[in-house]
Amino acid sequence: MMSDRITFTIDGVEVQADPGQTILQAADAAGVYIPRLCAHKELNPFGACRICTVMVNGRPQAACTTPAANGMIIENETEELTDNRRSIVEMLFVEGNHYCMYCEKSGNCELQAMAYRLSIMVPRHPYQFPDKDIDGSHPDIMIDRNRCILCARCVRASRDLDDKNVFQFVGRGKEKKVWINSEAKLSDTDMDVTDKATDICPVGAIIKKRTGYEIPIGQRAYDHKPIGSDIEEAKATAESN
């Protein structure tokens, strides 16, 4: 069995992987956090946000889609990569309209949390203030495309976990947007509030109605600990035992 294990290093630390695991999955299991937004444990890798870009033997690769291989020398937390990540997160902020102060997702938002983790104080890019639409037609769920980061989590969750295909992208380039399986309204689809796709949005683009601000400030997911702490702490716990 042991001979099947793949061994490689991330920032000099030896990491083991099972065959078929991606770099990201293996890193998670080893307690090494590689920042990511579109990747999600329950979903197939997608490779859209590019925040998990690491250097694999000197070449840039998305950790979420690249299979781990023996002997890989991976750089994760270098100054260059961290700054690229900041720049990409900042791109996501300026290409949408992200007003944290009135967003129900604030404190539990992975985009915001990533920006906290990377200590972003202001985007280097100019705000685009794009015109995006909102769909409030569904009785229990709202779509606010101002906040969408096009990570395709809802697309994948609805298709692969809910077996429904409520979401898909339309358009391309900067006009690309997440769209629904009906002419115009979410209420005309078979989307249900219990769907996995409802909860899987990393930002406040898909939110349940009448649940905003239920968790008081101070108790939200990222109020005290940076995103990725769970992965890093798992390692710390394992080591202290």
Partner: peptide, 10 residues
């Protein structure tokens, strides 16, 4: 240099 808990957008 601000610690993690002092960087908040909301």
């Amino acid at each position: 240099e601000l610690p993690y808990e002092l960087i908040k957008y909301d």
